[in-house]
């Protein structure tokens, strides 16, 4: 209990500082409320989230390291519609691979996050294993340079913490990152 409430009430004497505090306090209250009200005019009900435009992406590799999360919130996505199902895949096979097989030394991906499944001769399906992908964009680079560009990077919104100032957007050399509406959080290729 405060001491003030147990002492007998004394007549309030209006001092200069008290007067100023009362009026300036009221004034600043109106000011903060007014500022908030005026700013809310420029606000929106819907939240925006970060996403990278795969058509602008140059797969520089910044996404892997610049993100505040380890591993990055950016992961590779495969647009099957665009894929050529090649036996020699620019996104899967290392340029110096001796055999076009699934051996570790033949693979480009540093974590082995792409699964290669035989469909019919000579076509193979390539699937991203999301848990293993670290968003380095090596496969995206290979696929874009030597293939159809069906592999691309996206910010996964089950992981992204939606930073106020996206750390990857800051270092992206082509400004591929932008804010998109939260109900349509992906910028996909081939849809």
């Amino acid at each position: 209990m405060t001491q003030a409430s147990t002492t007998p009430a004394q007549p309030e004497k209006l001092t200069r500082s008290g007067f100023l505090r009362r009026w300036l306090g009221g004034l600043s209250l109106a000011l903060v409320a007014g500022l908030a009200g005026a700013t809310s005019w420029k606000s929106k009900r819907k939240t925006q989230v970060w996403q990278l435009d795969p058509h602008k992406c140059v797969h520089c590799g910044n996404c892997e390291h610049a993100c505040v999360l380890k591993p990055s919130a950016v992961k590779a996505v495969h647009a099957y519609v665009l894929c050529g199902y090649c036996k020699l895949c620019g996104g899967y096979h290392h340029p110096q691979a001796k055999n076009l097989d699934t051996a570790a030394e033949s693979q480009l991906c540093p974590t082995g996050a792409i699964k290669r499944t035989f469909i019919e001769d000579p076509f193979y399906e390539y699937t991203i294993i999301e848990e293993k992908c670290i968003g380095c964009g090596v496969c995206v680079k290979g696929c874009s340079q030597f293939g159809n560009g069906s592999l691309f990077l996206q910010v996964r919104h089950d992981r992204c913490v939606n930073c106020n100032d996206c750390a990857i957007a800051r270092v992206c050399p082509v400004q591929a990152f932008r804010l998109v509406p939260a109900d349509e959080p992906y910028l996909l290729k081939g849809v």
Binding site: V77, H78, V81, H157, D158, N162, A182, E184, P185
Partner: peptide, 8 residues
């Protein structure tokens, strides 16, 4: 199908 996890 190209599946993306649902938005948060």
């Amino acid at each position: 199908l190209l599946t993306a996890p649902a938005a948060r």
